[in-house]
């Protein structure tokens, strides 16, 4: 006997997102600041001021800014090692982020962590994670806590297309679905897992399809327009907050730089990268501001100058701060 297939859960539909000028100005400013933070870190890395492995989110800014923009301050964000933008969008300052990357005492994690270790308990930003997929069950646990305490807070968990292959991802989503947790899983599908393109890493390239197996809501869309990201996330966030229904979202995006600073990215053609740069989320937001919201050059210039000053201050702060100086206590001293 053939058994019937389970019906698919809620699937979002595309609709026009009209420009709200004040909102878009704010989001544009955030994206711009994030891009400048990434550029400043790349430079500092080249100068040896930042060590370790540095993963930049240049090109993907609309995803973190749009998604986090759909949250309230009391909501939680759990991110990956490509998390500088997410931290900033959640309200952390350029100062505390850059100082952390520099390994300075004034960094958000006292300089003990560095690039993959941004935490801010006050801003409810629960860190970067360097072990791919390991953070997904942990995010489910945070969401459980919210439900348990009746808090009406949402947890937003970011991950990459590569992470959609590892056990931790499946186990985390399975628990969230089973326990009906107030959580949104968002896959930043930038088409590559390090040097591996999607078609060599996923048998089905639509990551949101995995939601069907867990019986949870799903959504899937292009991530270059920050307003669209924000609007679509808002639906999922509301569903999580009001009815404790998890959603699995796949957003298509692209990183303009290599996987990390040590990756020259030779597995992609120049043409491919150039093609994607035409869909730069910053240019799109700027164009929409001018064309659809009558923003004038002076207004935008003002924002750009503000960001420039903010970054100059943050870089100076990171440069001048004292280095990290704390260890966990050794149990045995030499």
């Amino acid at each position: 006997m053939n058994l019937p297939y389970a019906p698919s859960r809620i699937e979002a539909v595309e609709r026009e997102v009209p420009v709200n000028k004040a909102l878009l100005l704010g989001l544009y400013r955030q994206m711009l600041a994030i891009r400048r933070i990434e550029e400043a870190s790349a430079k500092a890395y080249a100068q040896g001021k930042i060590g370790g492995f540095l993963h930049l989110g240049i090109g993907q800014e609309a995803v973190c800014v749009g998604a986090v923009g759909a949250l309230r301050p009391e909501d939680y964000v759990v991110a990956t090692y490509r998390e500088h933008g997410h931290a900033y969008a959640k309200g952390m300052t350029a100062r505390s982020i850059l100082a952390e990357l520099y390994g300075k005492k004034t960094g958000c994690s006292k300089g003990l962590g560095g690039s993959m270790h941004l935490f801010d308990a006050e801003k409810n930003f629960l860190g970067g994670y360097g072990i791919v997929g390991g953070h997904v069950p942990l995010a489910a646990g945070v969401a459980y806590k919210c439900k348990y305490l009746g808090e009406k807070r949402v947890t937003l968990c970011f991950f990459g297309d590569g992470a959609a292959n590892i056990g931790g991802f499946f186990e985390g989503v399975a628990l969230a679905a089973l326990w009906k947790l107030p959580i949104v899983f968002i896959c930043e599908n930038n088409l590559y897992s390090m040097g591996t393109p999607l078609y060599r890493s996923l048998s089905v390239e639509d990551v949101s399809m995995k939601a069907l197996a867990f019986g949870i809501a799903r959504d899937r869309f292009d991530g270059e327009d920050v307003l669209r990201v924000r609007a679509r996330l808002a639906e999922a966030v509301e569903r999580a907050r009001e009815t404790c229904e998890p959603t699995l979202i796949e957003v298509r995006t692209y990183r303009f730089r290599g996987h990390s600073m040590s990756d020259p990215g030779q597995y992609r053609t120049k043409d491919e990268v150039e093609e994607w740069k035409k869909r730069d989320p910053l240019s799109i937001a700027r164009r929409r501001l001018v064309e659809e919201a009558d923003a004038d050059e002076g207004e935008l210039r003002q924002i750009e100058l503000g960001v420039k000053a903010e970054l100059e201050d943050a870089i100076r702060f990171a440069d001048e701060s004292p280095p990290a100086d704390e260890y966990l206590p050794f149990t045995i001293k030499e």
Partner: peptide
């Protein structure tokens, strides 16, 4: 025994953590 310390591997203080010729 000359070893690393009982701490998560440090990012900034790596030079102190790693055994070296002087130690």
């Amino acid at each position: 025994r000359l070893c690393g310390f009982d701490t998560p591997f440090p990012y900034t203080l790596e030079h102190e953590y790693m055994p070296n010729g002087d130690r």
